[in-house]
Amino acid sequence: MKKIFAVLVVCMLSACASDNAQQTSDVEDHSYGSEGEGARGGAGSGGFGMNPLQDPNNILSRRSVYFDFDSYAVKGEYRELVLAHAAYLRDNPNAQVLLQGNTDERGSREYNLALGQRRANSVKDVLLLSGARDQQVEAVSLGEEKPRALGNDESAWSENRRTDILYQGEY
């Protein structure tokens, strides 16, 4: 059953990656472990002694995966971001992350807590399928309790529909 689920998730991610034509500035082409500037110095070093998690030129410094309204599907535009974090976790077995699923303010408290958990679990599933270990990843829901943007319009709501990736020492 787990293998079937894993295959379905990978197929969904592949389909999302090819369907999504709109790119955002949240994801740049600084793949972890590639020949790009963010990978100088090898796995986990971030180049010249800088922590890749703190290097603004490294994709690992990007920590939020945004979702469509009432959805918990990881969009294709965040595929490289999540895969980069999975590679970092795979290469750094002592690293741990907390995934915080968030929602906008619409919906009941109970519904938003459940949706936030599904969002965090979706990111966790991709991380685990891509090399992270289960003991490295914890997924929790904050529901609507930790908004990034205040306001009652789509601009604010879209900032709040997210899963944040926090590394040990950041939570």
Rank of each mutant, 00 (worst) to 15 (best):
M1S: 03
K2S: 13
K2M: 14
F5V: 12
A6T: 02
L8K: 15
V9K: 08
L13N: 09
L13I: 05
S18H: 14
S18T: 14
N20K: 11
T24A: 08
D26W: 08
D26S: 05
D26Y: 10
V27D: 07
E28M: 14
S31N: 11
S34Q: 02
S34R: 01
E35G: 11
E35C: 04
E35F: 15
A39Q: 01
G41Y: 03
G42I: 11
A43Q: 07
G44A: 06
G46V: 01
G47A: 11
F48G: 11
G49Y: 09
G49S: 09
N51A: 11
P52H: 03
P52E: 06
P56V: 06
N57E: 14
I59K: 00
I59N: 00
L60R: 00
S61Y: 00
S61M: 06
S64K: 15
V65Y: 10
V65C: 03
Y66Q: 15
F67Q: 10
F67Y: 15
D68C: 00
D70V: 04
D70A: 15
D70R: 13
S71Y: 12
S71P: 09
S71N: 15
Y72V: 01
Y72L: 04
Y72M: 05
Y72T: 09
G76F: 04
G76C: 06
G76H: 02
E80Y: 02
V82T: 05
V82C: 09
L83E: 12
L83W: 04
A84S: 15
H85R: 02
A87P: 00
A87C: 03
A87V: 01
R90A: 08
R90V: 07
D91M: 00
D91Q: 01
P93D: 11
P93E: 12
N94L: 14
A95Y: 10
Q96S: 14
Q96P: 09
Q96A: 07
Q96H: 06
Q96R: 13
V97L: 09
L98P: 01
L98V: 03
L99G: 03
L99N: 05
L99Q: 10
L99D: 08
L99V: 08
Q100S: 12
G101V: 02
E105I: 01
E105W: 02
E105C: 08
G107S: 14
S108E: 12
R109K: 15
N112T: 10
A114G: 12
R118H: 15
R119K: 11
A120N: 05
S122D: 06
V123K: 05
V123T: 07
D125K: 11
L128D: 01
L129H: 07
L129M: 07
S130L: 06
G131D: 11
A132E: 00
A132V: 00
A132C: 04
R133A: 05
Q136K: 08
E138Y: 11
S141F: 07
S141H: 07
G143L: 15
P147T: 02
R148W: 12
L150V: 03
D153V: 01
S155F: 14
S155Q: 13
A156S: 13
W157P: 02
W157A: 14
W157Y: 13
W157L: 10
S158H: 11
S158T: 08
S158G: 04
S158L: 11
R162G: 07
T163V: 14
L166S: 03
G169S: 15
G169M: 13
E170G: 06
